[in-house]
Each structure stands twice: as structure tokens, then as C-alpha cells.
Nucleic acid binder design. Sequence first.
DNA 1: CGAGATTCATGTGAAGTATACCTTTAGGCTTAA
DNA 2: AAGCCTAAAGGTATACTTCACATGAATCTCGTA
Length: 424
Amino acid sequence: MTPDRWNGDYMPTDLNEMFNKYLTKKSIFANKNALTIAFKPNELPHREKEIEQLVGMLAPALRNDKPSNIFIYGKSGTGKSVVSQYVASELGRVASETNGNVKVVYVNCKMRRVADTEYRLLGEIARQFGENVPETGLPTDAIYKIFEKKLDSKEQILILILDEIDYLVNRIGDDILYNFTRYNESLKNAKISLVGISNDLSFSDKLDSRVKSSLSEEEIVFAPYDAVQLQDILKKRADVAFVIDAVDDGVIAKCAARTAQEHGDARKALDLLRVAAEISERMGDIKITDKHVNMAQDKIDVDRVVEVIKTQPKQSQLVLWSIINLLEGKLQPTQKKLSPNGKVVIETGDIFNVYEKMCGKYGLGKLTQRRVSDLIAELDSLGIINAIVISKGRYGRTREVKLAISDQALEKVKDIFTNELYFD
DNA sequence: CGAGATTCATGTGAAGTATACCTTTAGGCTTAA
DNA sequence: AAGCCTAAAGGTATACTTCACATGAATCTCGTA
């Protein structure tokens, strides 16, 4: 029987029922989007001060004065992007109602294949001006010319918001920023104001001093949310996202408290709540409870670890797999060593031996011990393993390695690696 | 018995190499006048 | 002819190697009490 001949007749009745049950079941979600980053809330609680600051700094544009260049700092999930996008769109709206000489362009520099090189960034900006630029093919200064001509074609003020600007500068340097700040001297009609957004607080140290001084004429710092503020934010979103009575305040408070302990990242708090809700829905419960939040926290932790490991290069994964095997005792170290408290201790030499065997087994090229040593250090800084350098006196010096992930995550990772084809 | 030298097993740094991927650019192709 | 695309040329970041030297406490050595 080929798949294209399948129809309702072939579908087992219990499957039919299952689908129907899913369709008719009441969802606890009223609007799930409200818990994602794409959602633009119509109020931004606890950011009134920052909004006011930013508006104050950008408002001169409405009187045709060039606003200062602005630098916005803050850790991730503190509302930098939402606030600047919100203010920018409001400014654009007000401007178009009055004189219409303000143009706001928002670019996220981290978006791969969109704005992560000089060429692509300029192309993207030109495109937002309604200019049709090819994605590739033109020399970079041609793009500069197109952009300059379009911009200077009438009297206007461009407010250019560069989100994740630290990423851009790390990749392609700060020349492009210097060019932007210099434009104001050569342009006859138009003016440019830059708004740079970065979550790296030490970012401005990396800039050329000329760029640094002109870019940070004004600065705004976004502090992390505290538990109370997070709770407020979650509550507002939850009102939109869920049907009435699906969540208790206690549950929201718990999500807020959990996230506040880490870095007060609002995005993470929303994720936690959303995943908890998804779990409770899948379990067929009509209310989100503490239990669901705990499960969600576990799931997020596991997913994070799995994600990090999956994106590691193959060799690094194989080193990790060697470590796991050693710790699980499947492959004995040549001479089994025990620490005083009876726990199995593994060190670089053991790992390298096992790793070499694994390379043979899976047909991967062997790396040198030097490199493996670096890979172990990397796994440590990723928080997947715990490796401390110790000196054993006459018996040399090594790293003592332990796993630093939860049992659930470990099971999942073993699952992935055990898959026959994984290392081919 | 204790100060200092020695030793082991690997950490760490610097510099060089191979490779994959990216940008640039020139030349060719297409389209519209 | 202008605009657009593409393939080769040239650059650059990444992953790795090679060589060389650094570490630091257990252990050894040897002079002294």
C-alpha cells in the first residue's frame, strides 16, 4: 500500500478518535503568541524610565534636529530591543503624521545571511529604504553609493538602530560605524543618528576611540528585572495568553522567582511559563501547577545541554562520549584509579586513550593530545563537564574530570550518541 | 631530618598549516531601449 | 548599454599540528645534627 492511497478508510478508528479528542479538547491557551519573543506587548511595564529617556533623546528629530548618537547597554532579556523598537515605531508614526522627515531603520546585526557583513548590512538598510539591491555581485562601495544617494535625495533624518552591534563589530570591525558617523559631514540634506544596542557591557572598550566618543554621546543602561517586576510582566502576558483561571498567581510567582535568581532575563521567564503550559496541556490538565513548572525547568535544562552538545564539532562530541563511557565504567581505564572517597576519577591520559580507541572504532581521524586537552577545556567552559587542573606531585599533573549535567540530560545525550549512525 | 633538586604527566603558549567558507571582481549573459 | 548573475580569484576564520617551555607537589638526595 503506497502512502498516496491512504485515506480515511485505512485510518484506524482509535487514531481518528485521538485526533478528534485533540481537536475538541479545550486549550488552556487563548493566545499562545503572547509568550514568545515575536509578540509586541502594548505596554512595557517597569521600563517607563528608559522609554522616557530614549524618547527625550530622539525627540529632536521631530524638529529636524539631529538627535545624539545613543548607546544602549543591558544583559539579554532586559527589554532593550522591545523598548527601542517600540519607541522607534512610535516616533516614525508621529513623524509621518506631522512632517514625515524622519525615517527609522531597525536592523538586527546577528541575523545570519541578512546583516552580518558590511555588504549585507548596507544592502539590508538600502532595502528598507525601498531600494532593490542584489544580495551579491556588487562591489561594496557601489552599495555605499546607492545608499548615500537614496538617503541624500531629500531632507530627512535617519535613525539607524543596530541591534547586537557587538556581534557586528566582532565580525567586521568598527570601520563601518566610523563611516556612518562621518556621513553627517558629507551629506547635504540628510542626517544620520545611530542607536547601538549591545548586551556586552565592556563592548565600547573594543572600539576605536574616535568611534567610541562619537557613538556614545548618550548612554542608557538597562538593569535586569527583579523578581517582583518579572512577576508583573508575566502576569500581564499570562492574561493575554491563557484562558481565565488557567494559572494561579503562585505559579507565576514561582516562574518569576526562578528566573530572577539567574539573571532576571524576561525572555527566559516567559519561556519557562510557556513550556510549563505546554506540558500541562499535553498532560490534559486544565490548570498549570508547580509540578508543571518544575518539569518545565528540567526540560529547559535538558534541552539547553542537548542543544549545546549537538552544535559541538564531531571531535568534541567524541571526546565527550569518551568521558561519558569512562565515567559509566563501560570501558575500564587501563589502571582503574579511585579517589579517596571511592569515586572513579578520570584524567586527561585516560580520556585520550579511550578517545583514540573510539576514533578507530568510528573511523574518525585522531587528534593530538594537545588538541584534546583544549577540547576538554572547552567542554568545561561550556558547563558540560567539570575539569580542574591538579598536580599529583611526583606523578605529574592533570585535569580531574567529572560530568556537570543532570541525570536526565545524561540519559538523553547517551541516547543520541548511542544511535548507530551518529558518528559516521 | 629537612632544604633543595628532581621528576612526572600534562598544562599552556606561540607559530605554522590545511581547509572550508566568504567576499570580490571580472567577464558573460539578459533585458530593455 | 545597463543591469544582473556567476564562477574563479583572492582572503580570512577555524580547526588542527608541532615545537617548546611551564607547572607544582610528591619524591629523592644529600648534608648535617
